[in-house]
Each structure stands twice: as structure tokens, then as C-alpha cells.
Simulated scan of single mutants.
Amino acid sequence: MKILASVAIAASLALPLSAIQAQKADIVVSSNRSIERFAEDISRDLDRHLQSPTPLRSQVQESGVAQVLFQCGPDGKPANITMYRGASSLAVNRLAKRAVSKIKVLHPLPSGLSEDQLYLANIIIANSPVQHAQLSRQLQKREAQRLASGKDLRKIFAFNVRNTPST
């Protein structure tokens, strides 16, 4: 990102002042990162935070599906983090919100996503593969309801994260 910024600054200094003043359009720098790669990167980052040993993670023995809504702040970090639809376990909800707050950076955003985009992290915390399969079906129903609602909830960029112990 610093390299792109330096190149843009150097290019603007190379232009004559009149050309800069005549230019009315904003310069937009977009990422070559695909939306699929973006979702994979964020999911991997979230999964790392869900797996890392913390006092909160070691206390969570429950399971559930937590859907955490957030936006990208000006610094590229998650902002306005709220629970869209939580699990019945408060510990699972706290763990999910904490993992979202620990995402390193969302920037650069792929083309097609705006700065005011809403994101929905669908997080499954399961204690076994069987439980994960059950919770996945529950999440599928929730997502089908959200998409069928006809509200602006369809414009949310949703991605899934699972946290299941390895077998």
C-alpha cells in the first residue's frame, strides 16, 4: 500500500500544476484481490483468532452460531461491530465479536466493495464434526431467511467461518 501511495504522489508531482488543477476526477486505487480471495483471507484471520489460546477461548465449552455484523473503518480495521443474530451462549457471542475485532485489516478492498459495505461473519463454534454439521444446517436456514427477507439485508457481504476441533 505504501508503494502505491508513493507512486501516486510521485506521478502527481511530475504533472504540470495546470494539469493537476484541470483534473476534476478523484484518483481511485483499487485492489487486484478478488472477492473470493478477500473472503478467504478474512475467514483465515478470524479462524486464527478463534483457535488461538486465550482465557476467553479456554472458557468456551458451549457451541453455537453467531452472526456478527461490522463495517470497515477508515483505518481498514473492523468498526461498528454488533451482533446480528447471536448464539444462545453468551460466551460464544463474546468470542465471535472478539475475533471480529481482532481482524488485522480489511484493506485493500476488492473492486466491487465500497467503504461503507456491511459485512456479516457467520461463525460456527462446534465441539465435534457432528455438531458442526448440525450447526451448519442451522446457519443455512438463517441465511435463507435473511436472503428471502427482501430487505437491504441482501446487500450484506457474508462469509462463513467454522471453528471445530480437529479429529
Rank of each mutant, 00 (worst) to 15 (best):
S128G: 08
I125G: 01
A121C: 03
D47P: 00
S114D: 00
T54H: 10
L13H: 10
I3W: 04
P78M: 04
R37M: 05
Y119M: 04
R146E: 00
D116K: 12
E143V: 14
A14W: 15
S30W: 03
S88A: 09
K151I: 10
A144E: 10
G112E: 01
R154A: 11
D75A: 14
D41N: 03
A5C: 07
G64E: 06
L90M: 09
V161T: 10
S88F: 10
V28E: 11
Y84P: 01
N163H: 15
A10S: 14
V105F: 08
L139S: 12
S128A: 11
Q145I: 07
A22P: 00
Q71S: 13
V7G: 01
N32V: 15
R98G: 04
E143F: 09
E115F: 06
Q138P: 05
S34I: 04
D47V: 07
C72Q: 10
I125V: 15
R162S: 15
K102M: 13
V161F: 09
R85G: 02
H107P: 02
G76Q: 04
L135A: 09
P53F: 09
L69S: 07
A14Q: 05
K24P: 00
V92P: 00
G73E: 10
K102V: 00
V28P: 00
P108I: 06
S12A: 13
S34C: 05
Q21L: 13
N122I: 11
L95G: 00
V29R: 03
S101K: 11
M1H: 12
S128Y: 06
Y119G: 02
